[in-house]
């Protein structure tokens, strides 16, 4: 065992604790599909598809769940003639 590496390493258990706390807080809040971020994701897409035809390939959704704040980034390419198609 390399002694230098042994002592130079930071403890990893606090990281595990923090990650689990955030994850489980989200999972306990979400029963079935009632998770707020998931709901938002679906409703945003629904609202957009009312006004234009959304090409599934052109939609990128990214999520980052945090302890205090979660972020939801919906990136949609809107083509020039999108409005016409919806009619």
């Amino acid at each position: 065992m390399n002694l230098f590496r042994f002592f130079s390493r930071a403890q990893s258990a606090p990281a595990a604790r923090e990650r689990l706390q955030v994850l489980l807080a989200h999972e306990r809040a979400a029963t079935g599909d009632s998770d707020l971020v998931n709901k938002l994701r679906d409703e945003i897409l629904k609202a957009i598809s009312k006004h234009m035809q959304v090409d599934d390939e052109k939609v990128s959704i990214k999520m980052e769940r945090g302890a205090q704040v979660s972020t939801l980034a919906v990136d949609i390419e809107i083509p020039f003639d999108a409005g016409k198609k919806a009619a």
């Binding site: 959704i61 769940r65 945090g66």
Partner: peptide, 11 residues
Amino acid sequence: LVMGAERRVVY
């Protein structure tokens, strides 16, 4: 969780 992507799962 093991790969550290647990907060980024969308679908």
